[in-house]
Design a protein around this nucleic acid. Structure first.
Lengths: 360, 360
DNA sequence: GTTAGCACTCGTTTAAAGAGAGTGCTAACA
DNA sequence: TGTTAGCACTCTCTTTAAACGAGTGCTAAC
């Protein structure tokens, strides 16, 4: 038994209907609404076949049928081939108009708008520091025994790390050390900064000036430890309560199960870090690793600087998600995000910048 | 008609029962469980009086009675007089054991633990930048046209602000400007930094060195604008889904109403900023300003550095909140937070520091 | 002032009946 | 051989009615 053209048409009709209505659909409705020119009885036969093939299930005898994860996967794969991406959506254009200064805010705002448009729960995750190359290191005094290290990566990402010192240190010395660290460490991928490289760099430094700074070694050790322990990945979500709009979660205990899962950032980070690094990743129902979200789908896209993935943005919702809309939205969004990031962080021409230039 | 001793006892019994069970309570149960030595009929008479006085209401004729906001207020005021605060709670002590480097993380963790202990939704809010005095300013290059300004306040709070420049600037110059800004602006309350003071400072600077830096004025303007527009207050919450445990919110639409309200950080910030600056603030039901949370109570405490309030931490839950427990928890928590903050950020002796010292 | 007794109220639970949607199967049709 | 009408059957959801029960307010007695 094969998926002939008619079966496909019927399946698509069922999927579309279920995505919209959220209720099992019967043969009569299919043949009437989606006029395929065949009678309910014929549709019934085909539906029985589709069930046998694993694309449909019946919640109970006298109900209609609903699509399985397998059906959604087929449907989504079909959608992905005819890649349409919304580039001119008015709401997505709002994102373009944002004043973007801080990357984090920009991404968060984008996620917020995404959830508002789609009515699903959106999220945004930054990449791990380890994946990045350093560009600049600056030490800033905070109090006598507290010291802030600002790490600027080549993607123009900024990380703050606070230290506790055992004795105060003067600003001039901080600046000298900052410059030295920047000089020696810029361009190096943080994950490569292991014991070996660390000693090599220290050697180099001592090679230049025999007795430079008694605090330098302490700083280097702290820096090393920090980078090795810095697993922190920012995770942000918005529109959590959108989940409560869907009848799937009208039962509070079901809603709680899902919301608790999403609220647990560590858990949710695992989900996202395990999803592949494709530009567009779609995980449908059982394709998810964790039990609590096996009735959900997650659609996410990456955003990049210099071709390096620096984060993910996407949506989570019920498996009967409006994939068509969601995919084109997220494609359009990530296209725009990447465009804006490169305009802003690659120091290319930027409208605002050009305007200011004229006035000089 | 007055609130005599017996009425008070009965009212307290009803409140305690309702807080625990969440269900209207009748005269029979009161007289049996809380053996006050009076019959149900007598309790009934008193309950009728209490209803007339506005302390109780009946959901419907044949139901028991539940306390009104007025009753909770009376009860809470009573609790506040006999100030007990949990200082030795094992779970709160966990907070003491945290490794605290960054203030934000420390406060967030504390809020997280608070929600885990109490099973309500916790929040933590940082104070506005404007309220603080500056201690150090450091400019850090991010890219050719991006510049990071790190502001360190006297409370050792750290704020990052990103600028877009219209032409690149060298590191040496950045450091010089940083030093100058720090020199001139440290100790000044940010909200006092208005047009007048700004010009005065610029004059002073030009007085010292006639032509110092052509970029200095640009920096000052940016700084000014930033500080004036920097309304950002961090708001964090945890245990959002705890709300779903309470029968009050077993109806998804009710849950959604409340959760959406809390999720809207701007709205929730307003609530918190309007609450008084007392060490402990309790808003019960209708005492709240916004319709969406008039069936909730909010209990919050402040935390301080140098006597200046730098944030609030607290809980939101149904009006039948376990005030007794919550109050003592939050009191104990804020006591410990303040203790830890002063130990860490006032550069007083700290155990870890002392241990390190020995090894020298 | 307190309490037992009792009629009354009203939401909740339980059971039964009915409606409705949809199916699978059979037999007839093109 | 594929398609379709007809029909009995299944199962959930809704409706209706009855019984239940918790709690009250009032009255009269203690």
């Amino acid at each position: 038994m094969n998926l002939n053209d008619r079966k496909l048409k019927i399946l698509r009709a069922i999927i579309k209907s279920y995505i919209q209505e959220g209720e099992a659909i019967g043969s009569r409705t299919i043949s009437k609404k989606y006029d395929l020119g065949i009678s309910p009885a014929t549709v019934r036969n085909e539906m029985a076949d589709l069930e046998e093939l694993g694309y449909l299930i019946q919640p109970h005898t006298s109900a209609g049928r609903i699509p399985t994860d397998k059906a959604y996967r087929l449907y989504v794969n079909g959608l992905l081939k005819n890649t349409e991406s919304v580039k001119n959506n008015a709401q997505i254009k709002k994102i373009l108009q944002q004043e973007i200064n801080e990357m984090n805010n920009f991404i968060r705002n984008s996620a917020k708008i995404l959830s508002q448009i789609t009515k699903y729960t959106s999220f945004a995750m930054s990449a791990q520091l380890k994946e990045c190359k350093l560009k600049h290191i600056q030490l800033v005094p905070v109090s006598d025994h507290k010291l802030l290290m600002v790490l600027v990566t080549e993607n123009s990402d900024i990380k703050n790390v606070l230290f506790t010192l055992n004795k105060p240190i003067e600003i001039e010395q901080l600046n000298r050390i900052s410059n030295l660290l920047t000089d020696k460490l810029s361009g190096i991928e943080l994950k490569k900064l292991d014991e070996g490289l660390y000693h090599k760099i220290l050697q180099e430094i001592y090679g230049i000036r025999e007795t430079f700074d008694d605090r330098l070694e302490e700083m280097m050790v702290l820096l090393m430890n920090t980078i090795h322990n810095y697993e922190k990945v920012d995770l942000y979500y918005d529109g959590l309560t959108n989940i409560l709009n869907y009848p799937e979660y009208s039962d509070t205990s079901k809603a709680k199960e899902l919301l608790s899962f999403v609220e647990d950032k560590d858990l949710f980070k695992k989900v996202l870090m395990n999803s592949d690094g494709d530009d567009l990743s779609i995980l449908i129902g059982n394709e998810n690793q964790f039990e609590q979200i096996k009735k959900c789908s997650i659609v996410s896209a990456t955003y990049k600087v210099n071709g390096v993935i620096i984060g993910k943005i996407g949506l989570i919702g019920p498996t009967r998600m409006d994939y068509k809309n969601v995919i084109s939205m997220i494609k359009g969004l990530s296209y725009n995000i990447n465009k804006i990031i490169s305009e802003n962080y690659m120091d290319l021409a930027r409208s605002e910048f050009n305007e200011q230039k004229k006035e000089e």
